[in-house]
């Protein structure tokens, strides 16, 4: 199997898998969604909250803030040597204290160490009017998407077969109908010949096939080449998250092999 990044940004990736099967890529997709651990706020102690929002809503909003995750420094609380009491190996503490009038942002969460500082500092949590106060302490711990969606590191993940567009230029009469109907503008007429501009953009909708009266165009998906797209919420980078998923999947296959 060969993996190439077609597009790679900090929080977004488009990956091409070659010599593979849909079943295997789906296993990777499911691992990415439900098994990659990340950090999220789990316990919130509220000392003072005179804002317009209930304590629960504020705690819920805090839980969904993506926190930077250094997986080599943390372990799951259930597996930690502190027996689930909470220690520096499995817990990260944050404090927040603000008085109005102002908007409380995710950047106002003060971590115990600068490396845990929230990267996305502009998420509004609550608006405070004059004399309203918010003072709280939050504990973050590792979890997986299986437990709760706030621990899901990726979002908007999906894959498709690699599009293969076959054009029979003898049958084609350059009527331009397929070019117009294509929602992704994949086709073009160049030098009096129907041509494919960008195959990877094709979504296999087959509108061009339907509109062609002469059967000159055929769209197929190559099952052995798959394009996967995903975004991360910012707690892990797009590359890290895929590496981690492959590691976890590898471990699972090893376990299965041992038990057989």
């Amino acid at each position: 199997m060969k993996i190439t990044f077609l597009e790679l940004e900090d929080n977004y990736a488009k990956v091409l898998f070659e010599n593979t099967t849909p079943y295997f890529v789906n296993a990777i997709r499911r691992t990415l969604i439900s098994d990659v651990p990340k950090l999220a706020i789990e316990n919130v102690t509220i000392y003072d909250n005179t804002s317009a929002l209930f304590d629960e809503i504020i705690a819920h909003r805090l839980g969904m803030i993506p926190l930077p995750t250094h997986l080599d420094l943390l372990v799951f609380r259930e597996e930690c040597s502190c027996n689930g009491k909470g220690c520096p190996n499995c817990t990260v503490h944050y404090t927040l204290s603000k008085e109005g009038s102002c908007t409380v942002y995710s950047g106002d969460l003060r971590p115990e160490d600068a490396m845990w500082a929230v990267k996305d500092k502009n998420i509004p949590i609550v608006k405070l009017l004059k004399d309203q106060r918010l003072i709280l302490e939050a504990e973050a711990q590792l979890g997986t998407g299986k437990q709760h969606a706030k621990w899901q590191a990726v979002c908007g993940i999906g894959y498709k077969y690699y599009p293969v567009i076959e054009i029979d230029s003898e049958k084609c009469n350059l009527c331009n109908e397929c070019v117009e109907i294509c929602p992704r503008k994949v086709l073009e007429i160049k030098k009096k010949k129907l041509d494919v501009k960008n195959v990877e953009e094709c979504i296999l909708c087959k509108s061009c096939e339907e509109v062609c009266k002469r059967d000159a165009i055929k769209v197929k998906g190559d099952e052995n080449r798959i394009i996967m797209q995903y975004e991360t919420d910012g707690s892990l980078s797009a590359k890290e998250v895929l590496m981690e998923a492959l590691k976890i999947l590898h471990k699972k296959y090893d376990e299965l092999e041992k038990k057989l």
Binding site: N122, C155, D233
Partner: peptide
């Protein structure tokens, strides 16, 4: 009303 932290459907962070 305050903007939701994340997209209701896919979970992308939108608050910021």
């Amino acid at each position: 009303m305050i903007i939701p932290v994340r997209c209701f459907t896919c979970g992308k962070v939108l608050g910021s």
